[in-house]
C-alpha cells in the first residue's frame, strides 16, 4: 500500500493542529464589512420608501395610515441581508449590523416598525432619487401595503381615502 502517501497525509493533519473554535461558548467575531441584520434609524429615516421599493425579498412594507403618518415595517422573516436597502437609503438611515445570531421563537424580534411623521412633500415618494433608472419604480402618492397580513401589495393611490382594505387581492390562509 502507498505508505509514504498515507504518512504524508497524517503529517498534514497533525501539523495543522486543532482549528475549530469553541463557539458558542465564546463569541465568534465577524469582519467590519459583515452584512448582518439591518437596523433602521427612525431619527434619520425620511420615509421615502426607496428601501421598500427595491427590497428583493419584499421584506419592507409601507402603509400610509393618514396624511401625516407613514408606517414602515421591516419584517425580517426571509430577509437575505443583501444590503440593497442600506445601499439605496439616501439618508444612511439603514446600517447592516454584525448581528447574525438572529434565531428566535418570536418573529417580531427580528423585525422593526417605524412610525414616521411625514411632511407634505415627502409622501409623494419623490424624495428618493434613484442612482440609476433601474431603481426607479415611478411610485407616486400614497402607498398601501397589507400590514395586517404582512404582505407586499405594492399599490399606490393618488389620494388617501377611507377604505384601505385590499379586497381585490385574495389572501390565502389555511
Amino acid at each position: 500500500m502507498s505508505l509514504a502517501a498515507k504518512i504524508k497525509e497524517v503529517l498534514i493533519c497533525l501539523r495543522a493542529g486543532r482549528v475549530t473554535l469553541p463557539y458558542p461558548f465564546e463569541p465568534a467575531t465577524v469582519p467590519k464589512a459583515f452584512r448582518g441584520r439591518p437596523i433602521f434609524d427612525v431619527e434619520r429615516c425620511v420615509g421615502c420608501a426607496g428601501c421598500a421599493n427595491n427590497c428583493p425579498a419584499r421584506e419592507i412594507l409601507v402603509e400610509d395610515v393618514c396624511q401625516e403618518v407613514r408606517i414602515l415595517k421591516y419584517l425580517g422573516r426571509r430577509c437575505t441581508y443583501c444590503g440593497r436597502c442600506a445601499d439605496l437609503c439616501p439618508e444612511n438611515a439603514i446600517t447592516m449590523s454584525n448581528e447574525f445570531e438572529t434565531a428566535t421563537d418570536e418573529i417580531s424580534d427580528v423585525g422593526q416598525t417605524l412610525e414616521l411623521f411625514m411632511g407634505t412633500c415627502q409622501r409623494c415618494g419623490r424624495c428618493f432619487t434613484s442612482p440609476t433608472p433601474l431603481e426607479e419604480l415611478k411610485l407616486k402618492g400614497y402607498r398601501i401595503d397589507d400590514l395586517m397580513n404582512e404582505r407586499w401589495v405594492f399599490r399606490s393611490k393618488p389620494f388617501l381615502n377611507e377604505e384601505k382594505t385590499v379586497d381585490d387581492i385574495d389572501i390565502e390562509l389555511d
Binding site: V30, P31, A33, F34, R35, Y81, C82, G83, L134
Partner: peptide
C-alpha cells in the same frame, strides 16, 4: 466575508 460582507452570498453584481 471580509470583502463582500458574507461568506457565501456575495451579492456582488448590479447591472453595469
Amino acid at each position: 466575508e471580509k470583502i463582500t460582507g458574507n461568506r457565501k452570498t456575495y451579492a456582488l453584481c448590479v447591472i453595469g
